[in-house]
Write a protein that binds this DNA or RNA. Structure first.
Length: 446
RNA sequence: GUGGGUGUAGCUCAGUUGGUUAGAGCUCCAGACUGUGGAUCUGGCUGUCGCCGGUUCGAGUCCGGUCACCCACCCCA
């Protein structure tokens, strides 16, 4: 006897049994449908890239979190930590053939070697969509529309898309002569809701090395609160004099106006000047999406405008804007909010194998139903009915079909609504309609 | 990466100041029902007490290490 190897997965890496994989695939399908409806085209890129492609593109933090090693050919390689940086490489490599503007979506796993937490994993999926090759605010606005439609398609009503524009803050910093301190200031500012203004001011003076009155002005900006209209008004009054900030303010204003006109519920979009995001490459609009019922799990869909990212790989200007849906975090949230159905079967109908000698009849009906778009599983053994029904219930089947000698004599089937525990005997011609009726009334949660 | 917490049957947990054969509920499996599943009844299965090592006559219980999960920081999807 050889010694058994303990079956286990790495920290932050997980298996996905059917009851997790089914809602996962459903989310991916919804996202794909929404992206395609806006004209974003699918692409894919390798999981592994040359380390130099990925290093220094996200932030110091993402560099540290990189899964990096030397491959069999002695190459310095790393697993991608997001889909945006590989896309920039992809775009720089293929832009001549693709033409601009170019819109793509990309769904796949990414890896970050950071500490795990609820909704935070080392391997997780992102569902990105981006438009590159244009600086037009129309593209920025479309990102907000897509996020809204995406969340709605996934079945959410109560969520808030928080938006900001880095140009506003950068404009102010330039005016204060603090452009080079932007990063440290952003990090400090990000803590405002957590540690309070006094502590942030201290951190700004000590770590970012700015004067107290400068910190005060930055804080005053971030603390601008109120309705979207009020915030815009105050921004125009206090910072509109700066050219850069003025552009940022104007773009935010247009975004809100267009989204409203396009029919996005107004409470969904909220100006939040404390949203700045840690990734270095963002230069303009930034987005973060929070679930109103579970804000602590973090942003489930984030992104922004990056005007310089592809500049690292090509001299051609490739500005872009887009966002990323955090599939795994969203699923963790949905699980916690009990929005996930308990089904472990992708087919709604179980055809009971009552008499083994009738298998041909069972498979014939099953194929007929499948041809009509109804998923059917034929139970593989002629076990007693009770245990087959129990199997059906446990796996989350909605309907059971039963037929023995009596039914075959009459040319009928028993169609059983498993949730209601009711069954009706119907002629074979009526089976499809009877199943459809049951499937429809119970509108399963997504 | 830093700090804190947790880790006992499939699940939720109990397990007294370290002491002999480690428990409960639920679940599961099999049967009173060989054409019907959430109820009742009867019977039954399950654990290297996360893993490794140390202290001890003796450790689920104490100590060290390690792994995983949870929380906070950090950062982010």
């Amino acid at each position: 006897m050889t010694k058994l190897i303990e079956p286990r997965t790495l920290k932050g890496f997980r298996d996905y049994p059917p009851e997790l994989m089914i809602p996962r695939e459903r989310l991916l399908e919804s996202a794909r449908r929404v992206y395609r409806s806006y004209g974003y085209a699918p692409i894919d890129t390798p999981a592994l890239e040359y380390a130099e492609i990925l290093l220094g593109k996200g932030s110091e933090e993402t560099d540290k979190q990189l899964y990096r090693f030397t491959d069999h050919g002695g190459r310095d390689v790393a697993l991608r930590f997001d889909l945006t940086v590989p896309f920039a490489r992809f775009a720089a490599e293929h832009v001549a053939r693709l033409g601009t503007p170019f819109k793509r979506y990309h769904m796949g796993p990414v890896w970050r070697g950071e500490n795990t937490q609820r909704g935070r994993f080392r391997e997780f999926w992102q569902c990105d969509f981006d438009t590159i090759g244009t600086t037009s605010n129309a593209a920025d606005i479309e990102v907000a529309l897509v996020i809204n439609d995406l969340m709605e398609a996934l079945g959410f009503e109560r969520f808030t898309i928080r938006i900001n524009n880095r140009m506003v803050l950068n404009g102010l910093l330039a005016e204060l002569g603090l452009a080079d301190r932007s990063k440290a200031l952003l990090i400090a500012l990000d803590k405002l809701p957590k540690i309070g203004r006094a502590a942030v001011a201290t951190e700004m003076t000590q770590k970012a090395g700015v004067r107290p009155e400068q910190a005060e002005r930055v804080l005053a900006l971030a603390e601008t609160a109120g309705s979207n209209a009020e915030v815009l008004e105050r921004l125009r009054r206090d910072f509109g004099g700066n050219d850069t900030a003025a552009v940022g303010i104007a773009r935010l204003a247009e975004l809100l106006a267009v989204a409203d006109k396009a029919g996005v519920p107004p409470q969904r979009l909220r100006l939040d000047l404390s949203i700045c995001r840690g990734l270095d490459y963002y230069t303009g609009t930034v987005y973060e999406t929070f679930l109103d019922d579970l804000p602590n799990i973090g942003s489930v869909c984030s992104g922004g405008r990056y005007d310089n990212l592809a500049g690292l790989y090509t001299r051609q200007a490739l500005p872009g804007v887009g966002a990323s849906l955090g599939l795994d975090r969203l699923l963790a949230a949905m699980e916690e909010l009990q929005l996930l159905p308990k089904t472990a079967t992708p087919a709604p109908v179980l055809l009971v194998q009552f008499e083994a000698t009738r298998l041909g009849e069972y498979q014939r009906l099953a194929r007929t139903l499948r041809a009509e778009g109804i998923g059917v599983e034929v139970f593989p053994e002629a076990k007693k009915i009770g245990s087959q029904l129990q199997y059906a219930e446990r796996r989350g089947f909605r309907v059971a079909l039963i037929a023995g000698s009596e039914e075959f004599q009459q040319g009928t089937w028993k169609v059983k609504d498993l949730a209601r525990r009711e069954e009706h005997t119907v002629p074979e011609a009526g089976v499809t309609a009877a199943i459809r009726a049951i499937l429809q009334e119970g509108t399963a949660p997504r």
